[in-house]
Design a protein around this nucleic acid. Structure first.
Length: 896
RNA sequence: GAGGGGGUGCCGGAGUGGUCAAACGGGCUGGGUUCAGGACCCAGUAGCUUAGUGCUUGCGCGGGUUCGAACCCCGUCCCCCUCACCA
C-alpha cells in the first residue's frame, strides 16, 4: 500500500491558497447575476476554544454552503462573535483586567480553530457584537422602540439569579425555576424597576406565523406555540356578595359554570387582604398566605411539593347563572395568571382535590349519558367530555358543542367578557452588569426619563471600571454615570443597566448582509437580496429564547420599514447533541474530545467526515474513536484511487454498470445534500468508491474513469475539501474544486444498466408482477444474468477426469488448464467437496444439465415472447449476482 | 397532566407496502498479505440444512387489513425531550 497522505499538512496548504484567492468572498448582490443563498450557523459566544458541538455545527453549514456555491449560487456564509456576556466579565472580576481584553483574546482563539477546520466563511464580514460599531445599532433599535412605546420601564417582581448577579428574562428561567446559565442555581424573585421590550404586542403574529415556518422542525414550532401559550376563554364576572364589586375569573371551560361551587384567588393577589379584612378568618388567611410564600421556595426544589393548601376568606361571591352564594378561598395552586382568580368545580382535578381536603361542596354537571351523577360520592374529578345536566337551558347538550354558545350567552347576559390570554410576557432586557450594550437613557431630575439623542450614539462602555467592587461595575464609573440632560442641559445621570445579550443576537443575521455600514444598521436593498436566511443551523436550546426574539426583532424591523420580510429564517436545522459513552460531552463528566487534537492527528477532513457520517444532523451523535479511524481510512482509500490505473483501448464490459452506479450516486448525493442528510450522501459516496475500486482492478475505459473520478472528487469536496483540492490538482486542474460546478446526473444512464432486474424462471409462470412489468417495457435486448453458468461444463469435466484418475492434484491441474481456470477460486473449493463423496456426482451433473437446459429454453421462450435477442451472461461477482437476483436455477434478466 | 419524537441485527443507524435476512459504517470470526504490529484485501457474522441450494424464524408486544407488511390500521408496553398546579 502506498504511504498515507498527511491530511493535516495538506489542509494548511490549501487553506492558505483559498485565503490568497479570496475564494469564498460573497459577491455584491446588487451587481451579481447569481441567485443568492444565505447559509448561517448560530454564531458562537467566544469562549476561546472549540468543542465538538461547534465542529458539528460548522461542518454541517459548510457542506451546505459549499454545495450551493458549486451549484452556482452567490452564497452568503459569514461568521461573527456574540461577544458580550457574563463569562468575560466574571473572568475580569476574577483575574483583574478588562472584559474587552479577555474577549478579544478568546475571539482570536476560537477563530484560529475555526480556520483550521477549513470552513468556507467570507471572513471579510466578520464582526463582534461587543464593538461599538455593532452595539451602536442595538442602542439605535432601542431608541426606535422607545419612541414607539415598545421599550418601557416598569416595576414588578422579576427573576434574579444570585450567581449572575442580575435579573433574567422569563425565557432564561428554565426547568424547575433555575437559571439558564447556572442550572444549580435557583432563581429568586425581586421587586425591581426594569426595562422591557413589548414582545406581547406581537404575540398574535408570532403565533400565527409559526404556520408559515413549514421547514422548521415540528418540535421547535410546538415549543414556540406552547411558550406563547394563547388561550381563548372568558372572564366571568362573579359579583362579590353584599357589595357591587365583581370578581373576574378567567376560564376556558365556561361549560362547567353550573357546577361552580367556589372561587379561588391567588395568594399574591392584592384583593386577598382587602377581602378578608375584618372577617373571623383574617388571621388564618394571613398565616396561610405566609406559609404559601415560604412554601413556593421549597416547592421549586422538590418536584413532589405539590400539596394544595389554602384558606377561606370569610367572604362569598355569587354564581351569576344560578344566583348561588359560593365561598371565596385563597390557595397555593392558583397563579397570578389571567385575572389571578379562578372559578372552581368538580370537573377539574386540582379544584376537586382541594375541595375534598377542605370539605367544600362539589357538584357535577357533565356525565357520559347526561344522567345526573353525584359528586359527593365521587373520588376524583370528572374530566371527560359528555352530556350536560343540571345546566338550565343547556342541559342535554354535548358540553363541547355547548361551550362556544355558552360563551356568547354569558357575554350577552353581561355575566362575562370574552378574553384571549397569552402566557408570553414582555421581554425584560435590563441587566445589572457591565459587559453589555449600555441602555441609552438619561435620568434628569426635571425632565425625567430622557432618551439619548441619536446623534450622540454610541454610548460607549468606559475603558476602565472597578470590577472588584461588587454590584454593577458600570455604576462605579463616575465619568460614565454623570452627564447632562439632553433636553434641559442640567446635570443628570445615565442608566447603568446594560442590555440582555440576546438583543445582540436578535438581529445579527441582518447585519451580516451589510456588515460595514456606518450610516445605518444595514442597507435595505442589499439585505433584502439575502434575507430571509435560507438555512439556519444551531442548537435546540434556542428553540424558544433566541429564535423567538429574532422573529420578534425581524417583525419590528419590518414595521420600522427597514426590511420587507416577516420571518428571518426560512429553514431551520436543530442539531443533535454530541455524546460519548452515552452521555453528553461535558467537562464535568470528563468525556470530552478536543477537536484540536483530532484535527492535528487526522486532519480536518477526517474530523468533518466522521462527524457528518456518524449520524443524521438532528440526531444524537455518539463519538467513536474507531469511527474516526474508519473515516480516515476511507479518505486514504479515495486518495489512492487515481494511482496505478490501467487503461483499456476502448470501452470495457463493466462500463454500463459503472456508469449507472456513477449517475445514481450523483443523483443520490445531490438530493441528500439538498435535504441536509449528510450521512446518507456520504453512504452513496462510499458505495461509489467501492465500485470504482473494483472497476480499477481490471482495465478501465479512460473517459468514463476520468468522468467518474472528477464527479467523485467534486461531490466529496464539501465534506473533505482539502483532500479534494489536492486530488483535483492531481487530475491536472489549475482551478479550485471548491468552486467547480456540481455534477448533474443523467437518468437514462442510470436506467440503461438495469431497466428491470426481475426474478425470472418460475416467475414467468406464476408471478403476475413480473409479467406486468415486462409488459410495460418494449425490450430491444434481454440479458440473462446467470450466477454460475460454468458449473455444467465443470461438472462434465469433473466426470471426465474422475474416469481417468483419482489424484485430486491431477484433476485440479487439468481443470485449471481449461478455460474454467478463471473460476479457480471457487473450483479449488468445489473439487475437494465433490471428491469427498463421489456418489453424488451423477446427481450433481444432472442438476447442472437441467439448469443449463432451463436457461436454453427460457432464452428461447423470452426471445419468442418479446421478439428480441436474448443472451446469457455470467454475473460478474457474487455481490452483483445478488443485486441482480441471479442465482443458480434462477437467472436475473436485464432488459435494455 | 398537555404536546412532540422514538422503539430495526453485536453496536451506530438506513429503509415507510413487494427485488429485505435488511443500505452504509463499526465490531467480531476466519483467510490472504506482512519479520511482527498497524494498514490493506477477501469471506462470514438469526437458526437449521446443502457441493451449489433451500427452509424456518425475524424489525418492542398482541391483533387486523392485504395475494403480500419492518413499512398501513387498532390496541398495548416501554424510552427520550419540551412545557407544566395556565383554570
Amino acid at each position: 500500500m502506498a504511504e498515507r497522505l498527511n491530511l493535516k499538512e495538506l489542509s494548511v496548504k490549501w487553506q492558505a491558497k483559498w485565503a490568497a484567492a479570496e475564494l469564498f468572498k460573497t459577491e455584491d448582490p446588487l451587481t451579481s447575476a447569481k441567485e443568492t443563498y444565505y447559509c448561517l450557523e448560530m454564531y458562537p459566544y467566544p469562549s476561546g476554544y472549540l468543542h465538538m458541538g461547534h465542529v458539528r455545527n460548522y461542518s454541517l453549514g459548510d457542506v451546505k454552503a459549499r454545495f450551493e456555491r458549486m451549484k452556482g449560487k452567490n452564497v452568503l456564509y459569514p461568521m461573527g462573535y456574540d461577544s458580550f456576556g457574563l463569562p468575560a466579565e466574571n473572568a475580569a472580576i476574577q483575574d483583574g483586567g478588562h472584559p474587552h481584553d479577555v474577549t478579544e483574546k478568546n475571539i482570536d482563539g476560537i477563530k484560529q480553530q475555526q480556520k483550521l477546520m477549513g470552513i468556507s466563511y467570507d471572513w471579510s464580514r466578520e464582526f463582534a457584537t461587543s464593538h461599538p460599531d455593532y452595539y451602536i445599532w442595538n442602542q439605535w433599535f432601542f431608541l426606535k422602540m422607545f419612541g414607539k412605546g415598545l421599550a418601557y420601564k416598569k416595576g414588578g417582581l422579576v427573576n434574579w439569579c444570585p450567581k449572575c448577579n442580575t435579573v433574567l428574562a422569563n425565557e432564561q428561567v428554565i426547568g424547575d425555576g433555575v437559571c439558564w446559565r447556572h442550572e444549580d442555581t435557583e432563581v429568586e424573585q425581586k421587586e425591581l424597576e426594569q426595562w422591557y421590550l413589548k414582545i406581547t404586542d406581537y404575540a398574535d403574529e408570532l403565533l400565527a406565523d409559526i404556520d408559515k415556518l413549514e421547514h422548521w422542525p415540528d418540535r421547535v414550532r410546538t415549543m414556540q406555540r406552547n411558550w406563547i401559550g394563547r388561550s381563548e376563554g372568558i372572564d366571568i364576572h362573579f359579583p362579590l356578595d353584599g357589595t357591587d364589586k365583581i370578581l373576574p375569573a378567567y376560564t376556558t371551560r365556561c361549560d362547567t359554570i353550573y357546577s361552580v361551587t367556589f372561587v379561588v384567588i391567588a395568594p399574591e393577589h392584592p384583593l386577598v387582604m382587602e377581602l378578608c379584612k375584618g372577617t373571623p378568618q383574617e388571621e388564618e388567611v394571613k398565616r396561610v398566605v405566609k406559609e404559601i410564600r415560604k412554601q413556593t421556595e421549597i416547592e421549586r426544589t422538590s418536584p413532589e411539593g405539590k400539596d394544595k393548601i389554602g384558606a377561606f376568606l370569610g367572604r362569598y361571591a355569587i354564581n351569576p347563572v344560578n344566583g348561588e352564594k359560593i365561598p371565596i378561598w385563597v390557595a397555593n395552586f392558583v397563579m397570578m395568571y389571567g385575572t389571578g382568580i379562578v372559578m372552581a368545580d368538580a370537573h377539574d382535578q386540582r379544584d376537586f382535590e382541594f375541595a375534598q381536603k377542605y370539605d367544600i361542596p362539589l357538584k357535577f354537571v357533565i356525565s357520559d349519558d347526561g344522567l345526573p351523577i353525584d359528586a359527593s360520592k365521587a373520588s376524583r374529578a370528572y374530566l371527560n367530555d359528555g352530556t350536560l345536566f343540571d345546566s338550565g337551558e343547556w342541559s342535554g347538550m354535548n358540553n363541547r358543542e355547548a361551550l362556544p354558545e355558552m360563551t356568547d350567552w354569558l357575554e350577552k347576559k353581561k355575566w362575562g367578557e370574552k378574553q384571549v390570554n397569552f402566557k408570553l410576557r414582555d421581554w425584560l432586557i435590563s441587566r445589572q452588569r457591565f459587559w453589555g450594550t449600555p441602555i441609552p437613557i438619561i435620568y434628569c431630575d426635571d425632565c425625567g426619563t430622557v432618551p439619548v439623542p441619536e446623534k450622540d450614539l454610541p454610548i460607549e462602555l468606559p475603558k476602565q471600571a472597578d470590577f472588584q467592587a461588587g454590584g454593577n461595575p458600570l455604576a462605579t464609573v463616575e465619568e460614565f454615570v454623570n452627564t447632562t440632560c439632553p433636553t434641559c442641559g442640567k446635570a443628570a445621570k445615565r442608566e447603568t443597566d446594560t442590555m440582555d445579550t440576546f438583543v445582540d443576537s436578535s438581529w445579527y443575521f441582518l447585519r451580516f448582509c451589510d456588515p460595514g455600514n456606518a450610516k445605518e444598521a444595514f442597507n435595505k436593498k442589499i439585505t433584502e437580496k439575502f434575507m430571509p436566511v435560507d438555512q439556519y443551523i444551531g442548537g435546540i436550546e434556542h428553540a424558544v429564547l433566541h429564535l423567538l426574539y429574532a422573529r420578534f426583532f425581524t417583525k419590528v424591523a419590518r414595521d420600522l420599514k427597514m426590511i420587507d420580510v416577516d420571518e428571518p429564517f426560512a429553514r431551520l436545522l436543530t442539531l443533535g447533541m454530541v455524546t460519548k459513552d452515552g452521555a453528553k460531552m461535558s467537562k464535568s463528566i470528563g468525556n470530552t474530545v478536543d477537536p484540536g487534537e483530532i484535527i492535528d492527528k487526522f486532519g480536518p477532513d477526517t474530523a468533518r467526515l466522521f462527524i457528518l457520517f456518524a449520524a443524521l444532523p438532528d440526531k444524537e451523535l455518539e463519538w467513536s474513536d474507531q469511527g474516526v479511524e474508519a473515516s480516515h481510512r476511507f479518505l486514504q482509500r479515495v486518495a489512492a484511487l487515481p494511482n496505478e490505473v490501467t487503461y483499456a483501448d476502448g470501452p470495457t464490459k463493466h462500463d454500463t454498470y459503472v456508469q449507472s452506479k456513477l449517475h445514481s450516486a450523483i443523483k443520490g448525493v445531490t438530493t441528500e445534500f439538498e435535504n441536509l442528510r449528510h450521512s446518507m450522501a456520504i453512504q452513496h459516496l462510499m458505495e461509489l468508491v467501492g465500485v470504482l475500486q473494483k472497476y480499477k482492478e481490471g482495465e478501465v475505459h479512460k473517459s468514463l474513469w476520468d468522468d467518474a473520478l472528477e464527479a467523485l472528487i467534486k461531490m466529496l469536496s464539501p465534506v473533505a475539501p482539502h483532500l479534494c483540492e489536492e486530488l483535483w490538482a492531481g487530475l491536472g486542474h489549475d482551478s479550485f474544486v471548491s468552486v467547480a460546478s456540481w455534477p448533474v446526473h443523467d437518468e437514462e444512464k442510470i436506467n440503461k444498466h438495469a431497466e428491470a432486474a426481475i426474478e425470472a424462471v418460475d416467475a414467468l409462470e406464476t408471478d403476475i408482477r413480473t409479467v406486468l412489468n415486462l409488459a410495460n417495457i418494449t425490450p430491444k435486448k434481454i440479458t440473462l444474468f446467470v450466477a454460475e453458468p460454468w458449473k455444467f461444463d465443470f461438472a462434465l469435466l469433473m466426470k471426465e477426469q474422475l474416469e481417468q484418475t483419482a489424484d485430486p492434484k491431477e484433476i485440479l491441474s487439468a481443470i485449471m488448464s481449461s478455460p474454467l481456470k478463471q473460476y479457480g477460486q471457487q473450483i479449488t473449493k468445489l473439487v475437494p467437496a465433490i471428491l469427498k463423496d463421489r456418489s453424488k456426482l451423477p446427481e450433481y451433473l444432472m442438476q447442472q444439465e437441467e439448469e443449463s437446459k432451463l436457461y436454453e429454453s427460457f432464452t428461447q421462450e423470452l426471445g419468442e415472447r418479446f421478439n428480441c435477442d436474448v443472451i446469457v451472461e455470467q454475473a460478474a461477482d457474487s455481490k452483483e449476482a445478488k443485486a441482480k437476483q441471479a442465482m443458480p436455477g434462477k437467472p436475473a434478466i436485464l432488459v435494455a
